[in-house]
Design a protein around this nucleic acid. Structure first.
Lengths: 192, 192
DNA sequence: GACAATCCATACTCATCCGTATGGTTACTG
DNA sequence: CAGTAACCATACGGATGAGTATGGATTGTC
């Protein structure tokens, strides 16, 4: 009878605050990250917060670092484990397309590129992903220069799609239409 | 001797405020749009502002509408005027690529998709551009469904590139490299 | 079960920014 | 050159949210 919605109301740790912060960022953006609002959502008051963190900035910093670490390393390693290099690209595309949920934080941070704290984090994450993509394209047969440009194009398309269909709600694309779009992407961006 | 930086310090109109607002949005984002800051920048005080506008929201609204109207109609009409349909795509790509300045407001608004006021504006603008792109792809020979998907892909790449290389400063791409990237885009996204 | 460390609540201060009230100044019109 | 309308300055009120101070409650440890 007490598997309640409230997470058992035990005392909180710094990690609890960081997770809550990330959730709030994913839902309402970095700008909505206010300590009193977070405290209400966690069922406590500011007094708790300022015991765990020195300032609001410190929380944001910790949350960002946490997100960067807990990043999607699984995807990268799983893709790299595939034997056939040519099969990696389509698999990566379909994978990313079908689990957009983990990318909600990334999409939110994309809209917060004016905050000095998020820029370096996003730069590192985006850079790593871009390099991974470039490698895959080289392994798929593209010469270095072309692989880099194709990776730029592909990753830009990913970022743009997040903004247009995730954040902005451009004419709600249906499920079948979305699948068709993904296949179109694969056909267009995969080296023949 | 008096072609001064200060724009002659005559009295201000509502349009002056809207232009200043757009400039500030392009530079520092929608979140930085504060009336006292704007007033300082214009060399006046709040008293002036609240004569021209009822509220801060009203200014944002007016500025957005102004931006939407003064939009890049020239580009679209000029491209449509080209006789050879197949030549339109490359020309459009190169044009957009070489004058990124007018797209700074669009990039800034992209980061403000949580504000209820900007969503409808961005939806309309993006929708119009997407439809234009779709038409061009059809005229270039793609069947309707494929033209739509290709337009989605192309426009996503545009939006994503804005975010990655404009707002975020991913490893500052050189001028030559950028040109090569644009040509790669054309080669990849233009129907053979 | 006492005592210290950890965690949290309450009650403030302070800065910022939106909006209002009101009176002054500049430009236009007959 | 009046007088009116357009424009702006100054000085307020009120809301919001960050950060501080301090005492109380809870948890572990000898």
């Amino acid at each position: 009878m007490n598997v309640s919605a409230k997470p058992e109301r035990t005392r909180l740790s710094a990690e609890d605050w960081e997770d809550a912060a990330l959730k709030l960022i994913a839902d309402q953006g970095v700008g909505a990250l206010a300590v009193e609002a977070l405290a209400r959502q966690l069922g406590v008051t500011k007094g708790s917060f300022y015991w765990h963190f020195r300032t609001r900035e410190a929380l944001l910093q910790a949350a960002l670092e946490r997100w960067e670490q807990y990043g999607e390393r699984e995807v990268i390693s799983q893709i790299e484990a595939m034997p056939d290099p040519r099969a990696r690209l389509p698999e990566l595309f379909r994978r990313v397309a079908h689990e957009l949920a983990p990318h909600r934080v990334y999409a939110a941070l994309l809209k917060a590129l004016d905050h000095p704290q998020v820029v370096p984090v996003m730069a590192r994450v985006s850079q790593r992903r871009m390099e991974f993509l470039t490698t895959i394209y080289r392994e798929a047969g593209l010469p270095p220069a072309e692989a880099l440009n194709r990776a730029r194009l592909t990753y830009s398309a990913y970022v743009g799609f997040l903004q247009l269909n995730f954040t902005l709600g451009l004419p709600r694309i249906s499920h079948e239409e979305f699948d068709a779009y993904v296949e179109h992407m694969i056909a267009t961006l995969t080296p023949s």
